[in-house]
Amino acid sequence: MLYDVKMTVNGAAVAGQVEARTLLAQFIREHLRLTGTHVGCDTTQCGCCVVHVDGVAVKSCTMLAVQAVGRSITTIEGLAAADGTLHPMQEAFREHHGLQCGFCTPGMVMMAVDIARRKPGADEKTVRHELEGNICRCTGYQGIVEAILDGSAKINAARINSAEA
């Protein structure tokens, strides 16, 4: 049996037909062809598949596409501005070279944006703790943590400025 699914992905309404067992990660990658979301472990541990569902970070390999019906999803492809300007967190990862092979990067960046939202002003220890569900098999955490600290500071400074303006 196939199920009709409708949801918002990166601001656009999308629809498709899936089996009940189709994972959200599969729907994003194979139906929508948004292959920035990676699947590293398929066992809810590595965090390469992190996307935002209604604004909070979740592991899309451990959510069914049918569970996402009616929800708003943001993937790594939805972070940058329409003109290609990188999101401040993406820019911070570029600046601090927060990657080695790059496979875990989409999930790292999506989790980093979530950390910046939930833990403004987080110190290094907090950031490392918050990353426990995201694994970099190259062990390139140094640059990743530096990028998240810098990206979070910029995002939250912008947030305060826009609140004051």
């Binding site: 965090g47 970070a57 592991k59 979530d114 939930r118 569900g133």
Partner: peptide, 9 residues
């Protein structure tokens, strides 16, 4: 419990 993404769900 688990990690942040797990705690969200």
């Amino acid at each position: 419990i688990g990690d942040p993404a797990v705690r969200h769900r």
